[in-house]
């Protein structure tokens, strides 16, 4: 079983500390500015377009399992679900993970209930297609064509099927907003979708749409955690450069500190 080193624990606290501090400040009323993210603004545009054209909307979290990423996606789905409930728009949510399916169902039910339109909620909006990657892609493609969707939202983790999904929306002329942390799939979405959120922007989407203090505070905290990473990178670069000039070898004490196990700190023999 993999265990953290003491340095990882310290770094974790350094990263989480600012996040918790700014969540606390935001809850106390600190106003936090979030820069404009065109991709997230486009969510409303896409919903409006679908409603005006009388076409359906689709939202998929791709191959995302039950992870923090899914919760970030559900934050956006909740927003879209509420808008769909208000405008009485048709919404389809194709799923590939049965566990995520249950959470997606609960999110949409509550979105409709929040808007007082629970009677409009149809469980058939959420469709389990397949856990198998390309069977899911095939089902999604068919659904996009059959329902002739006006807007498609692709938020979550995607693999090789990303281009198949995005091309399906492109073929029916849907406005598409994609967001993924799968770096290898970003180029495919960039070339096929109208708007693409890259990496952590997906996590920021929930904060941007809900203006929830905990989420906006967390965003500010993450920026400070990035400063910590930047400082560590600078220290590492300095140590490697100095060491290579001094001894001819690029030794980095910082790396040694990070990788030192508990046994070397506590003085215990290495576990067998």
């Amino acid at each position: 079983m993999e265990h953290a080193t003491p340095a990882v624990l310290v770094l974790m606290l350094l990263f989480v500390g600012p996040v918790l501090y700014y969540i606390w400040r935001a809850n106390k009323g600190l106003e936090i500015f979030i820069r404009r993210i065109p991709g997230i603004d486009a969510v409303d545009e896409a919903i409006g377009r679908s409603v005006e054209m009388g076409r359906a909307m689709s939202f998929t979290s791709g191959l995302t399992g039950v992870t923090p990423l899914l919760y970030a996606c559900l934050g956006v789905l909740r927003y879209i679900g509420r808008r769909a409930a208000v405008y009485k728009a048709r919404l389809f949510v194709p799923c590939s993970d049965p566990e995520a399916l249950a959470l997606t169902d609960a999110t949409l039910q509550n979105a409709y209930r929040t808007e007082g339109r629970f009677s409009s909620y149809d469980p058939a909006m959420i469709r389990f297609l397949s856990e198998e990657q390309f069977a899911f892609a095939s089902g999604y493609q068919g659904m996009i064509h059959r329902e002739n969707v006006g807007s498609a939202f692709l938020f979550g983790r995607f693999a090789a099927e990303s281009l198949i999904l995005a091309e399906a929306g492109q073929q029916v002329g849907a406005i598409q907003v994609a967001a993924t942390t799968s770096a290898e799939q970003i180029p495919f979405f960039l070339t096929t979708c109208d708007y693409t959120l890259i990496g952590e922007e997906l996590y920021a989407a929930g904060a941007y749409l809900s203006k929830d203090p905990a989420q906006t505070g967390s965003l500010r905290g993450q920026d400070f955690a990035k400063v910590v990473i930047l400082v560590l990178i600078c220290i590492g670069v300095f140590q490697a450069t100095y060491s290579s000039i001094d001894t001819g070898k690029a030794e980095v004490p910082l790396v040694k500190w990070i990788t030192s196990s508990w046994s070397s700190v506590l003085g215990d023999p290495e576990p067998k």
């Binding site: 974790m12 990263f15 989480v16 996040v19 918790l20 969540i23 992870t67 923090p68 990423l69 919760y71 970030a72 942390t181 770096a183 970003i186 890259i198 990496g199 952590e200 997906l202 996590y203 920021a204 905990a214 989420q215 967390s218 905290g221 993450q222 955690a225 990035k226 990473i229």
Partner: peptide, 15 residues
């Protein structure tokens, strides 16, 4: 991208 996403994931997990 990975750094940003990992930090955001960590923050989300803590929340």
């Amino acid at each position: 991208i990975y750094f940003g996403a990992a930090l955001a994931g960590l923050a989300m997990a803590v929340r």
